[in-house]
Every structure is written in C-alpha cells, then in structure tokens.
C-alpha cells in the first residue's frame, strides 16, 4: 500500500510548527502504524534528512507512551486502542493521513510529535496514592473487599496515563484521567483514610496545570484505549462535593 502523510514538524518547544507532506510506498497491510513511521524515518535517515520524532515504548498498548493524533482522532481510528495498536490495513490505499501531536496546553511539545505529560504525574503526586509505609501492611486477607467494588476499582485502575482523554476533549480537560485514579482508590477500603484530601488536592492540581473543564461531551471515553467510563467523572464530582462538605463541617 502507498500513503501520503501530513506530519507535524516542530523543532522545539518554542519553535513554530507546520504540517509537512511525505510519502511512503509498498507498505504491507500487516505493518503497524508506528512501524510505518519507522519506515519513513529509515527513508529520511538514508536521505540524510532528520527523522520524525515520535514517542513509543511497549508497542502493545499498555505503557501509555505513544500519543499521536491520527486523522483528527487521538490514537487514530481503531478505538479502543493506543496508537501503537493501529495497523495500516485499517487505512485505504493511497489515503492521505494527517499526523499531529496531542494538543493540550499542559502538554508542551518537546519535538515534532513528542510531548511532555509530566502534568499528569503532578496530579498523581498531589494525592493519587495510599500512604502505606513499606512493611507496615496488615495481612492481605484481613480486609475482604466485595468483588463488585474490586472489579469496578480495577476498571478505573486500568488507565494507562496516555493523556488521550485530554487530547480528544473539546475542552482539553483531563477529568477522565483524574477521575479514574480518584475512583480507583475511593472504591477500595485501603483508600478511605485519605479519600477526602485526595480528591480535593488532585482536583486542585488538575486545575492548576491549566486543563479545561468537562462539559460532558464524552469524547474522552470514546478514544480511551483503556475503555475508562466517563461515569467515573460523575463519581469524582460526587467525591468532590462530599469532601468539600465534610471539610466545611470540619469533619
């Protein structure tokens, strides 16, 4: 198969970027999207040109490193899937494919298609954990957890931290990401002690990073490779009101 590509090139964070046209030929349909970019880069390198910078690591949809906007969709057309799980057989031969980075103010562009997502780490640092000193844990089976809550917590915990939710959200809001972590820990008995501080601090940090606000358009859950449900955002709101009230009551 042959493809025309329009790829976002940007030298550095400050640099001014633009879409540049490229061509790749004789791509087998079994090639993954990132391998197609590898081929393009091999070609550019051999021509003595600078290859396109794009990020990836596990290439099997679990590490959350890859982050491409393919034809206007975060992670491309194969929902639910990360960009590294997109294969060329999903495109038409001869098609023109536009490749852009995730565009969210708190994700500054490092180079070309590579962005810096440390904003998401800072949200977790604000409280996305259980303070469990190593070695101080009680026997694992001393606290039973109803299967339903454990399963629901697992659904929320599946988030791979890719940031596609914010990239796809018309408001560049990271609420799906934040709500997934908040819900995961709020659903488990181990998360109760810090439940209040956690949601208040994580939401405060999320706002401070400059993400947008949710207006319930559900684009995020549509592109989420981990199929995180937007109903966790409702849960987060609930958690937030509860915590604010209790804080007010001094509880």
């Amino acid at each position: 198969m042959n493809f025309r590509l329009k790829v976002w090139r940007q030298a550095s964070r400050e640099g001014k970027g633009e879409l540049r046209p490229y061509e790749v030929r004789d791509i087998s349909p079994a090639t993954s999207f990132l391998e197609m970019l590898d081929i393009l880069n091999e070609k550019l390198t051999n021509e003595g040109k600078e290859p396109v910078a794009f990020d990836s690591d596990c290439r099997e949809g679990i590490c959350g490193t890859c982050c491409l906007t393919i034809n206007g969709e975060a992670h491309g057309p194969a929902h639910p899937a990360a960009a590294c799980q997109v294969y060329m057989r999903q495109f038409r031969d001869g098609e023109t494919i536009t490749i852009e980075p995730f565009r969210v103010r708190p994700f500054p562009i490092v180079k070309d298609l590579v962005i810096n997502r440390s904003a998401l780490d800072r949200i977790v640092q604000a409280g996305g954990f259980v303070s469990a000193r190593t070695g101080s844990a009680p026997e694992a089976n001393s606290i039973p957890v109803p299967k339903q809550s454990a399963d629901l917590a697992m659904e929320a915990a599946a988030c791979i931290g890719c940031g596609a939710c914010a990239a796809a959200c018309p408001n560049a809001s990271a609420m799906l990401f934040a709500s997934a972590k908040i819900s995961h820990l709020a659903l488990l008995p181990q998360g109760q002690a810090e439940r209040q501080r956690r949601v208040l601090n994580m939401v405060r940090q999320m706002d401070a990073e400059g993400f947008g606000n949710c207006t319930n358009t559900y684009e995020c859950e549509a592109v989420c490779p981990a199929e995180i449900s937007a109903s966790f955002i409702a849960r987060m709101n609930r958690e937030y009101f509860r915590a604010s009230l209790r804080e007010r009551m001094g509880a």
Partner: peptide
C-alpha cells in the same frame, strides 16, 4: 486550554 487548534479534528461521539 488548547491555544493551538488541531489542523484536522474528527468528532467521535460528542
């Protein structure tokens, strides 16, 4: 929160 718009943007669900 999105100073630079996408050149191409598809709506999936909204």
């Amino acid at each position: 929160a999105r100073p630079l718009r996408y050149r191409r943007k598809e709506i999936v669900k909204a």
